[in-house]
Design a protein around this nucleic acid. Sequence first.
DNA 1: GCCAACGTTGGC
DNA 2: GCCAACGTTGGC
Length: 152
Amino acid sequence: MAYWLFKTEPDAFSIDDLKHAPNQTTLWEGVRNYQARNFLRDDVKEGDLVMIYHSSCKNVGVAGIAKITSAAYPDPTQFDLNSDYYDPKATSDSPRWVVVDVTYHQHLNKLVSLKSIKANDSITELALKKAGRLSVMPVTEHDWNEIIKMAK
DNA sequence: GCCAACGTTGGC
DNA sequence: GCCAACGTTGGC
């Protein structure tokens, strides 16, 4: 089982929205970055755990945990003319973008802020620390456990 | 709202 | 394939 971190803007979709979604599950749609897409397509597997990270908001940081409940399949929004995520270059024969299903697991007791993650010298691998705009990134077991510890 | 970092596009 | 211009992300 692997660990991941997914970014989301809570004004658009938050950990609370996930908790209250039908079956507490959603398609993680709208990833339009190739590096992030490749992780989703090739490496994210059913049963993996995901930290839900809130970006571009008042309290930036890791807010909760979710579980992957399906491996990648084509993102339906790439074919939807009415969607912001519509991609004219994507066809059903050769879809470009994928989604995975994500199911709510739990909120952290408290939000682990980006600031505190940056200040924690034992977290060394996390891509978040090196300023990336990556919206899907792997988390090592060590860094995962460290962030869980910080939420206590 | 600003702006730095970085990804994408397109001309050559 | 290079690289300048441009667009987007995301912290502050």
